[in-house]
């Protein structure tokens, strides 16, 4: 119980920290979040290095809009087209959510490529971040898989025929190609089960894998740290013991302050 001599501000602080302490004592989660938020990153990180977070945001937009669209979409060949029309034309803000999902897919893929390019050009796939790079490539492949499986769902001419060609492309793989084609199609030609399969893969299988891999990806980023831009004069890892320059405020996001200042 707060003694009556505490100021209102102190009482407010106590009121906020009490539930956090309760949670921390029973789970340790508050400490984890604090570690994530207040961990040190190199002082010279660049705007290009925000592409990873941007990709994550795009994916979260996709996940959210996708789950909500699933409340109105009907995954059978008889109803899919009509449900899409319904969503686009009749339901309040349906056009917006559907549009966000459809264009969010393009933005997500562009950002993945840009993020991959940035990591490559910064050499941030080298020791000790090789595993993270591999996870990232797998995420790219899965993102493209989401695009492919999701494309069939509106069940219009574009969707159907692009999927026919896509499945047949898979079928040209030697030995197991025809089996892969028939497995994806759910039969000898595209039918009702094809749509159900693609829906299940698009909604459950690949997103589950993506969530897991993103979790691993972020864990590794926190554990291994973020690299400095390679051109930076004060790159972390170069071990320079000179005081960082405080006049060059344009070398990156953050200009490291001289160690003399109170911190």
């Amino acid at each position: 119980m707060a003694p009556r001599s505490q100021t209102p501000k102190q009482q407010l602080q106590a009121a906020i920290t009490y539930p956090l302490d309760w949670l921390e004592e029973r789970s340790g989660i508050v400490g984890g979040v604090k570690y994530f938020l207040f961990r040190k990153v190199p002082g010279d990180v660049n705007w290009f290095q925000t592409l990873g977070a941007a990709t994550l945001t795009a994916f979260l937009v996709q996940a959210l809009t996708g789950v909500i669209l699933a409340m109105y979409y009907k995954p059978t060949t008889g109803d899919a087209y009509n449900s899409i029309q319904h969503i686009t034309n009749d339901i309040w803000a349906g056009w917006l959510v559907r549009g966000m999902h459809r264009w969010g897919a393009s933005v997500f893929i562009i950002l993945m490529f840009m993020h991959m390019g940035r990591v490559f050009l910064f050499g941030a796939y080298k020791y000790p971040r090789e595993l993270n790079w591999i996870i990232g490539v797998l995420l790219l492949a899965m993102g493209l898989g989401e695009g492919f499986t999701g494309y069939l769902l509106p069940w219009d001419q574009t969707a159907y025929w692009a999927t026919v060609v896509g499945i047949n492309i898979n079928g040209t793989a030697p030995f197991l190609g025809p089996f892969l084609s028939q497995f994806l199609q759910g039969g000898t030609y595209i039918n009702d089960t094809t749509l159900s399969r693609f829906y299940s893969i698009h909604m459950l299988m690949i997103p589950g894998a993506i969530f897991a891999l993103i979790g691993l990806h972020l864990y590794l980023v926190v554990r291994l740290g973020v690299t400095s831009p390679p051109w930076s004069k004060e790159a972390a890892g170069t071990g320079s013991t000179e005081p960082p320059s405080s006049t060059d405020g344009r070398s990156g996001l953050v200009s490291p302050t001289p160690r003399r200042s109170a911190d």
């Binding site: 492309i169 079928g171 040209t172 025809p178 028939q182």
Partner: peptide, 12 residues
């Protein structure tokens, strides 16, 4: 004269 084969998917 039709040279017949088992049904195969396109591209094979």
């Amino acid at each position: 004269t039709i040279h017949k084969w088992t049904f195969a998917y396109p591209g094979e």
